[in-house]
Write a protein that binds this DNA or RNA. Structure first.
Length: 264
DNA sequence: CGTGGCTCCTGGCGGC
DNA sequence: TGCCGCCAGGAGCCAC
């Protein structure tokens, strides 16, 4: 499976579906931890003990995180960071570069976690609920209801882009889909204090953008031509207006927006 | 509370 | 051509 760049909610959901179809119910024979930095507050021994001889029986996603359930009160937690991805390989297929963790099944197939930049983390949790609490994650961007979203966002005073990137406010949006949602809603990323009508429109666009991205498996070549996402480059032009895109930094991230139809 | 800066990390690219 | 140095980005942490 092609790895998506910069995993956010749609990439995580795409990968979850991939893992759901190829990695459940297979007996795990061995786990090979190539780089301990990838582990999220657990020792290699704990991970080995939890996985070896066991099997995954369910997959879940919340925000950008993926969970693979081992039993009723133990799940593997996956955070892809910036460049993390899984490849399911048959016995004969060769391992990709930057492999950090290898899960070897009894039938000889392997699940390979690769992550060049090593911002990703793999860990264990007893429940998704407690994990969400521990990591202080807000509502999942795809499943959140309008009222919850309005309650949280209308209380805050920061720029809208910074709020969308804050995982404790909304879980799942990263730099690219935050820009995309604002673009589709016609809102500039550096705006504060949006009125309710604007926030409601943004809420709808967030959902549209995320479900569109999931429907095309977050494949960069398949985004609608009306999307900003493939034009986020210096000198890029707005797909609606043909105007040169502006580039500013908010919260340490690069934001692209159309100065013509995105309003403050 | 908000924000900006720094850190982790390395592939990729611009500039010389 | 080759190499240096900077940048990208998620998120935690710290200082103001």
């Amino acid at each position: 499976m092609k790895s998506a760049s910069m995993p956010e909610l749609p990439e995580a959901e795409t990968l979850r579906r991939y893992l759901e179809t190829n990695s459940l119910r297979k007996v795990i024979e061995r786990i090979d931890i190539r780089n301990e930095r990838i582990l999220d507050n657990i020792f290699p021994k704990q991970l080995k003990k939890s996985l070896e001889g066991s099997r995954f029986f369910l997959s879940e996603r919340y925000g950008k995180r993926i969970f693979l359930g081992l039993n009723d009160d133990l799940l593997l937690t996956i955070h892809l960071g910036m460049s993390g991805w899984f490849d399911y390989l048959s016995k004969r297929e060769s391992e990709p570069s930057h492999t950090r963790v290898l899960i070897i099944f009894a039938d000889g197939s392997r699940l390979v976690y690769r992550d060049p930049r090593m911002f990703g983390r793999i860990g264990l949790t007893n429940s998704i609920k407690s994990f969400i609490r521990e990591k202080n994650l807000g509502p999942d961007a795809l499943k959140m209801d309008l009222q919850t979203y309005l309650n949280v966002i209308s209380k805050r005073k920061g720029t809208i882009k910074a709020m969308l990137l804050d995982q404790s406010i909304v879980a799942g949006l990263g730099n690219l889909y935050a820009d995309e949602s604002l673009f589709q809603a016609g809102i500039r990323p550096d705006v504060r204090g949006l009125d309710e009508a604007r926030l409601v429109l943004l809420f709808k666009r967030i959902k549209d953008v995320l479900s569109t991205a999931i429907s095309i498996k977050a494949d960069f070549g398949l985004f609608p031509v009306t999307f900003l996402i493939t034009r986020r480059i210096v000198g890029g032009r707005c797909p609606m207006d043909g105007v040169s895109l502006e580039r500013i930094r908010i919260g340490g991230r690069t934001s692209y927006y159309c100065p013509y139809h995105q309003k403050s």
